[in-house]
Design a binder for these strands. Structure first.
Lengths: 339, 339
DNA sequence: CTGAAAGCGCTTACAG
DNA sequence: CTGAAAGCGCTTACAG
């Protein structure tokens, strides 16, 4: 800008005015400055601009894994809203690691993003307290934050799992397996709670051996599925016959678990009923079609982003916790009768 | 920082040294400054830091649509590499709109990102020339840029489509439909070329009515599929019987097209052979399993990001065009014999 | 309508 | 080991 001012023989402020389309510049002057700008290929440095202005016109989004369809759907929605507000979006993945989440969130704070949407990886979010105190807007998405009073936008995980489990019960199942993510993950715990509630409401006992929570890699989930269905091969290094009665239906508590479970089932002789939490792209094309409890990631992301910008617009009402409904989509796999 | 310096009764530079873990500060002084930093809750403003330093330690990624599985897989790979280099990642989607791509890319440039990975939406990329001239590193991903000499990392689209089509031919098909994206999209055109090459190599004629390119929404693709298979219902407002002989196999040229085509086929009485470009999450679980020409989005993204950081590390060799192989995954749908 | 000065929050280059 | 001055590229507040 200094170069432009010098080359055009005008003051710095005049260049600034032209660059920003401010009024109060004579057309002749504006034209002269613009000509120099074009000639020199000058482009304003927005980082410098924003340093002076005090805003960064950017928000950060900390996801679990941008490569996951659920995360990327959230991402799309947040991006759309950010765009409406003229904001650029930083994204990063925590890989479900609380330290990494913290590192990432703080790096974003150090860049002075105006706001942060965080899918918490767990652990305590007290580290955001000083940031929030100095004006950062924070909205938690998919799971609530811990150790800080902030907005959260969640799905009705318990209600959804309850409905999915009840659906299996309504189709005659009494022994239903629950396959979920690591138990310390909020959504995982809430969905397990919904499963238990549905079983209790129907007066059905729950054998704890029907509940498998853990990592969601295909091998682990595959083992869990085979164990629940009493299809665990002998000598496989597993814990051996569990003694529990095999289940006739599975509730798989998120998209990755469902995917892995379906893969495992493809190699087994049994055809339990299946209801999955989260919809999958090809769910309707499987045979039978996959019955799911669908979240609305688009609405989740959009709601969180809107809330964030409300806060940036100085909405100082107390932190809200918004819970979005889930939807049971009946396609066949959840209506298979008990074997 | 000024406040910290004042409160600690030291110079600004000393605070800077402590914050940056620079050597040459007496332990006593360092402790005193650190105490004040903690007390005041001071956190360095990296934007200001980076303004002075001249780098921004951030890169931009312009995608077609972050919500698409292919884009999000690219995104994950780019993010992983950026993270290794201590860089934060801006992401944005062009929605396949050249103006929007330009707007987004220039906004990123105005923030002075160190580098840009762009999945081109089309149009001319001459607008990046001044940016590149002033030091911006640019790598195009998935499709080459136009009007600028820059690195590009692509899949072997032609070869993949050729292999997929040849696979159908090898299984006895002679009339094969091609359903692809808008013809002006580079990948779409290249894949169509591969299809033509395979047909020619086998001495098979191509009826132009077997080729359907256009938007990839389910309705449009569904109509195309029904027309190719001569299943277009009468009075549907379509162009009526095309007069072309119906095809016995479909080559669907990207993930969205494949998905939409499979949905359409689910409602039809015919079972053509299908080979799709791009792998899908549940492809193996369909019956028959979906035979695909798989790209390696992880490798694409990783390669592009590495190339970008090589350039940032002052690799000044001439622009490279890297083409990654595709892989035919045989699962059943491509081996269905002609009806 | 135009511009010189001060400052956003930091680092660089230098002097003590 | 420590710090005062200048500057990164812009805008704000003010004066002419």
């Amino acid at each position: 800008m200094k170069d432009v001012a010098a080359a055009a023989g005008v003051g710095l402020k005049t260049v600034s005015r032209v660059v920003n389309d401010e009024s109060g510049v004579s057309p002749a002057m504006a034209a002269r400055v613009q000509a120099v700008i074009d000639e020199l290929g000058f482009r304003r440095n927005d980082s410098a601009r924003l340093l002076r202005t005090g805003t960064t016109a950017s928000v950060g989004l900390v996801l679990e894994d941008i490569g996951d369809p659920f995360s990327s759907a959230l991402s799309r929605a947040v991006e759309a809203v950010a765009r409406e507000h003229g904001c650029l979006l930083f994204t990063g993945s925590s890989a479900e690691d609380a330290d990494r989440e913290r590192e990432l969130a703080l790096a974003l704070c150090a860049r002075r993003v105006d706001g942060l949407v965080v899918v918490p990886a767990g652990g305590d979010h007290g580290y955001l307290l000083p940031e929030a105190a100095s004006g950062l807007a924070v909205v938690f998405l998919d799971r609530p934050g811990i150790g800080i009073e902030a907005d959260a936008v969640l799905s009705d995980n318990t209600g959804g799992a309850r409905a999915g489990t009840a659906h299996l019960i309504a189709h005659g199942h009494r022994r239903i397996g629950f396959v979920g993510d690591l138990p310390h993950i909020h959504t995982s715990a809430e969905r397990l709670r919904g499963y238990r509630e549905a079983m209790r409401a129907a007066g059905l006992p729950v054998d704890e051996r029907w509940i498998a929570t853990g990592p969601t890699d295909p091998a682990t989930v595959g083992r869990a599925v085979r164990r629940l269905l009493a299809c665990e091969p002998e000598g496989s290094g597993g814990p051996g016959p569990s003694g529990a009665e095999p289940v006739t239906a599975l509730f798989t508590a998120n998209n990755r678990v469902t995917l892995a479970a379906l893969q495992a089932l493809a190699g087994l002789p049994v055809r339990p009923a299946v209801v999955g939490f989260d919809d999958l792209e090809l769910a309707a094309l499987l045979s039978p079609g996959l019955t799911v409890v669908a979240q609305d990631p688009e609405a989740l992301g959009r709601t969180a982003a809107r809330l964030l910008f409300d806060r940036l617009g100085h909405d100082t009402s107390p932190p809200r916790r918004i819970e979005l409904p889930t939807r049971l989509i009946v396609r066949g796999s959840g209506e298979v009768p008990p074997a």
